[in-house]
Design a protein around this nucleic acid. Structure first.
Length: 645
DNA sequence: GTTTCGGTTCTTTTT
DNA sequence: GAACCGAAAC
């Protein structure tokens, strides 16, 4: 039995043991939000709600895993039955059983970013929209995605986006249509389609909706401030019958509006659920009062939000430091000096983190750390499963599993010498747009279409294909990967990548990871939906014990460190110039992002303000101090001159 | 006709 | 780095 009253404070207790019905938990940073959710799960389980009838939606895979792990230690192995994960995961899990009712095969493939991008590129080519002035695939993808996630018509978004340009709206719509047709032909969904079709399934199939409404007696949603229109409607649908919904969030930490997140979902929750109880968690256990004062002062400049003030519980320690530096190089040197000083003070490397607005802000720091042989861990810009070598290896698994996977098939072929886009697409056409490894005719046809060097490799791989003949419900992923590497990819990697040992190591980790799944399909879905291996198999990866953490602020959400450095507090960098151009609401969101960065710190916070940006061609550009620094009352921070010539 | 290679340019945030 | 482009090599 868990002693809820002893283990939770009054605020947390009230939320965790709230009666059935709708509850909104407004949880400021560091106030035990996860703890409260974990105890909520425990409380439900103690009240004999079967675990497989609890739905727990989180924003990242990592958050789901962490919460379930903690719940497991509280209440035992039975929590394994809980349906927990991201919206994309849950949509996928449900769609796998009902895809046909929304017009997809049940073995639909999931397109990741790269896949979507190359499909869109293909559309542009086919439509002849290759002029220099025409928007790039990446931009188009962003617009399509925004339209899907905000449920707004693309025409409207495109109109405002291209208002001052000569881009033809009709062309943009044509690309979207062509992209949709191609996805259809491949039997594939991109990330947004998972959500869109997940919602459509519920809208169009009342019986399916009812099935899940009956199944899930309690719905819990974490990071509710970051849900978008589709997600909040989907949640409203699934708990529509009993209304047992508990959402947790902090409107101050809404930082995903560019992805369609709308913090008004949380603001309007009490209107959509008039019976809702509202709980506030304001007692902060994480940060020293000096840091909380800076956080409170900063967010006060966003007046349009729910007002909450964090109350400190920790003893006063020291004020956050604003450090003036000449440029990025000095910032890197200062930071390392300070890290070393803090180490002498007793802080460990892995208790410190460097946070920044965009990955490239950390480039100079990265090379400095590398030169000085300081171990650091980065949640990288290119995520593990998006790296070329990982995708190469997966392409083999994809062609064995999905006969219509043109992207996988062509990627594999293009690894071979002398095969480029032209050849791969010719072969694909010859196959009649489908490759079934079980048909020896198909295998032979490919061999005949290749030139000798490539054919030799193809034939060397043929024995590996026999793995595909094993029943679909088994997973030979790990052995497949090993065979592929042994017979071909090892040599290819050595010839192609300077850092091939690291890449081959990644691949063995990938094989180990693949081995954990019951089916190949399960593994491949996961590969598309996961972002970094780091989060998934951290212990398998590098030894992270004594390494400095580098991360974007977005990726640092929900985490905490004793010492936090924030880089590049200069106008144009943070707040990001790009983001500010996009929309007038951007300034508020950038400020929330700064708030998130500040509230990651427990003991010490450094705000770095370089004065000059060095540009490529030996030019340099003076920058203004970030508004987030200027807005802070002077007495709240210590100022330090980090310039040392 | 294709592939490959070398030079150039740019870098927001993520499922 | 990686994505794009143009030119050399096959």
């Amino acid at each position: 039995m868990i002693d809820f009253e002893r283990e939770l404070n009054t605020e947390q207790l009230a939320a965790a043991t709230a009666p059935d019905g709708a509850s909104l938990v407004l949880a400021a940073a560091g106030t035990g939000k996860t703890r409260t959710l974990v105890y909520r799960v425990a409380w439900l389980v103690e009240r004999e709600v079967p675990t497989d009838r609890i739905l727990l939606l989180t924003f990242t895979n990592k958050a789901a895993r962490e919460m379930l792990d903690r719940a497991r230690t509280q209440v035992g192995a039975q929590v394994g039955g809980i349906w927990g994960g991201t919206f994309h995961h849950m949509a996928n899990r449900i769609l796998r059983r009902h895809a046909r009712s929304v017009g997809f095969p049940n073995d639909y493939t999931i397109l990741d970013r790269d896949d979507s991008l190359s499909l869109i590129k293909g559309c542009l080519k086919a439509l002849g929209l290759t002029q220099r002035e025409f928007p790039k695939p990446g931009l188009l993808m962003g617009l399509f995605s925004r339209a899907a996630n905000t449920k707004r018509p693309l025409a409207e978004l495109a109109q405002s986006h291209f208002a001052e340009t000569s881009v033809d709206l009709g062309d943009v719509l044509a690309v979207q249509e062509s992209y949709a047709r191609r996805k259809d032909a491949l039997g594939a969904m991109d990330f947004d389609d998972l959500l869109v079709n997940g919602l459509r399934l519920f809208d169009e199939q009342p019986r399916v909706l009812q099935q899940y409404q009956d199944r899930f007696l309690h719905v819990l949603v974490d990071e509710y401030q970051d849900t978008n229109a589709i997600q909040s409607q989907w949640v409203d649908g699934v708990c529509g019958r009993h209304g047992n919904i508990l959402v947790v969030g902090d409107d101050f930490q809404s930082i995903y509006s560019w992805r369609g997140a709308d913090y008004r979902n949380i603001m309007s929750f009490p209107e959509r659920y008039p019976q809702a109880r509202v709980f506030k968690l304001e007692t902060n256990y994480r940060s020293v009062p000096e840091i909380l004062e800076v956080a409170n002062a900063c967010i006060a400049h966003n007046p349009e939000q729910f007002q909450k003030t964090m109350r400190a519980t920790r003893e006063p320690y020291r004020k956050p430091v604003v450090v003036r530096l000449r440029d990025g190089a000095q910032q890197a040197r200062y930071l390392l000096e300070e890290v070393r000083r803090l180490q002498r003070e007793g802080y460990r490397m892995n208790e410190m983190a460097v946070l920044y607005r965009a990955h490239f802000h950390a480039m100079e720091l990265q090379s400095h750390l590398a030169r000085e042989r300081v171990p650091y861990l980065i949640t990288s810009g290119v995520r593990f499963f998006e790296q070329a070598h990982v995708k190469d290896v997966c392409s083999l698994l994809r062609i064995l599993h999905a006969p219509h996977d043109e992207l996988g098939f062509r990627r594999l072929l293009e690894l071979f010498p002398g095969v480029g886009q032209a050849t791969s697409s010719k072969v694909w056409r010859k196959l009649g747009a489908g490759f079934d490894v079980r048909q020896s005719g198909h295998v032979k046809l490919v061999a005949d279409a290749l030139r000798p060097a490539a054919r030799e490799i193809w034939e060397r791989l043929e024995p590996t294909f026999s793995y595909a003949l094993t029943p679909a419900e088994t997973n030979e992923g790990a052995s497949l990967i090993e065979a592929f590497v042994r017979d071909f990819y090892r040599q290819y990697a050595i010839d192609t990548f300077e850092n091939y040992p690291a890449r081959l190591e990644d691949i063995s980790e990938l094989a180990a990871f693949a081995g954990r799944f019951a089916t190949l399909q399960g593994f491949l879905s996961e590969v598309a939906l996961l972002t970094n291996l780091d989060a998934e198999v951290e212990n398998l990866a590098h030894d992270s014990d004594e390494a400095l953490r580098l991360s974007t602020i977005h990726q640092a959400k929900g985490l905490e460190w004793k010492v936090v450095f924030v880089l590049w507090l200069a106008e144009g960098m943070f707040p990001s110039g790009r983001a500010m151009e996009e929309s007038p609401a951007a300034a508020s969101e950038e400020r929330r992002l700064f708030y998130v960065a500040v509230t990651r710190a427990q003991d010490a916070l450094y705000l770095c303000v370089p004065e000059v940006r060095r540009l490529r061609e030996r030019g340099s550009m003076p920058c203004l101090t970030s508004r987030f620094i200027d807005e802070l009352p002077r007495e709240l921070v210590e100022r330090e001159q980090g310039l040392f010539v």
